[in-house]
C-alpha cells in the first residue's frame, strides 16, 4: 500500500509538471512542489503516529536519550552566553534610567519570548537534524529504504516517526530547562557584575514570569521540533544520488529549517501576544 502511494505521488508530481502548471517558471515550481511534499510527509507521519500509537515508544525513549546527551551542553552554553549579553545591555540601559532593579523584566521578556526558543531549536536542528538527514540520506544511497519497501515494511514509520516524536518532546523540554540558564545568567549579571541585590532581582523575576509565557514557549518549541523533524527527514529521504548529494541535503535542510523556525516563532508570538496581552505588562 505504501509502495502504491509513493508511486502515485511521484507520478502526480511529474504529471503536474508536464501538464497543468508547465508555464510556471522552474524555480518557483520546485519550491512549491517541495513545500507541498514536506506537508504531505508531515500528514503521513502524523496519521501513522496517531492512528496506530503502539510499538515505537521504546525507540522514542532511546532517541530522547541521545538528544539529551548531545544537546544539553550546547543548548545551555548558547542560551547562557546570549542571555549574559542581553542582561548586560538591559542593565546598562536601565541603570542609565535609574531603574536597574527592573532588569529581570527585560531579561525574561527578551529571553523567554524570543531567544530561548530560537536557540534551543537551532541547537536541536544543528545537532540532531543534520544527523537525521545524513543517516536517512546514506540509507537511501545504500538502497536500504528500497529494501524496506521490498520487504513490505513502512520505512517512514520505522525510521521517521520515533525521531520526529523525540524531537517534538525534547525540543520543548530542552527549551524549558534552558530557562534555568537564563535565570542564572541574569542573576550573575545583576548581582555579581552589576549593582542589584539578589532579593530585588528575584522579586522582579517572580512578579514578571507568567504561566502563558512558559506555555507559549513549550508549545512553540514543540512545533519547531516538528518542523525540524519533517524538513530534515524529507531532505534525507529525497537525496538524489552520490555522497555529494548528502552534504548538499544537510546544508539545504538547515536553511529551510531556519526559515520554518522563524515563521513558527513569529506566528506563535503574534498569536500569544494577541491572546494574552497581560504578557506585556511591566509589573
Amino acid at each position: 500500500m505504501r509502495v502504491r502511494q509513493v508511486d502515485q505521488r511521484e507520478q502526480g508530481a511529474r504529471g503536474i509538471s508536464r501538464r497543468g502548471v508547465g508555464g510556471v517558471p522552474e524555480p518557483v515550481r520546485s519550491i512549491v512542489v517541495q513545500v507541498g511534499e514536506i506537508i504531505q510527509l508531515a500528514a503521513r507521519v502524523l496519521h501513522s503516529a496517531l492512528r496506530y500509537p503502539r510499538g515505537y515508544w521504546r525507540d522514542v525513549v532511546d532517541e530522547c536519550y541521545v538528544l539529551v546527551k548531545k544537546g544539553l551542553v550546547p543548548s545551555f552554553a548558547t542560551v547562557g552566553f546570549f542571555t549574559f549579553v542581553v542582561s548586560a545591555g538591559a542593565y546598562g540601559i536601565l541603570s542609565r534610567l535609574g531603574a536597574e532593579h527592573l532588569m529581570a523584566q527585560f531579561t525574561l521578556t527578551i529571553s523567554i519570548r524570543e531567544v530561548v526558543a530560537f536557540m534551543a531549536a537551532m541547537v536541536v536542528a544543528g545537532i540532531m537534524g543534520t544527523a537525521i538527514t545524513a543517516d536517512l540520506g546514506s540509507r537511501v544511497i545504500r538502497e536500504e529504504i528500497s529494501a524496506f519497501r521490498v520487504l513490505g515494511l513502512d520505512a517512514e514509520r520505522l525510521l521517521v516517526v520515533p525521531k520526529m516524536l523525540a524531537l517534538v518532546v525534547m525540543t520543548a523540554l530542552l527549551a524549558v530547562v534552558s530557562v534555568a540558564a537564563v535565570v542564572a545568567c541574569g542573576a550573575l549579571v545583576g548581582t555579581v557584575a552589576g549593582d542589584v541585590s539578589f532579593a530585588a532581582y528575584w522579586d522582579s523575576l517572580l512578579r514578571n514570569i507568567t504561566a502563558p509565557d512558559l506555555v507559549n514557549l513549550a508549545v512553540k518549541t514543540a512545533l519547531m521540533g516538528f518542523v525540524i523533524g519533517v524538513v530534515h527527514s524529507y531532505k534525507g529521504l529525497n537525496v538524489s544520488a552520490g555522497p555529494e548529494a548528502v552534504g548538499r541535503a544537510v546544508n539545504q535542510s538547515v536553511v529551510i529549517t531556519f526559515i520554518g523556525i522563524f515563521i513558527v516563532n513569529l506566528g506563535m508570538n503574534a498569536f500569544s501576544l494577541a491572546m494574552y496581552p497581560d504578557m506585556n505588562v511591566l509589573r
Binding site: 548531545k70 550546547p74 552554553a77 548558547t78 537551532m122 541547537v123 544543528g126 545537532i127 540532531m128 543534520t130 544527523a131 538527514t133 545524513a134 543517516d135 540520506g137 546514506s138 544511497i141 555522497p243 548528502v246 552534504g247 544537510v250 538547515v254
Partner: peptide
C-alpha cells in the same frame, strides 16, 4: 557518508 553527516553535526554544535 554517515561520517560526513556526523562531522557536519559536530562542527555545527561546536560552532554554535
Amino acid at each position: 557518508p554517515v561520517g560526513v553527516g556526523t562531522n557536519t553535526a559536530r562542527s555545527m554544535a561546536l560552532n554554535l
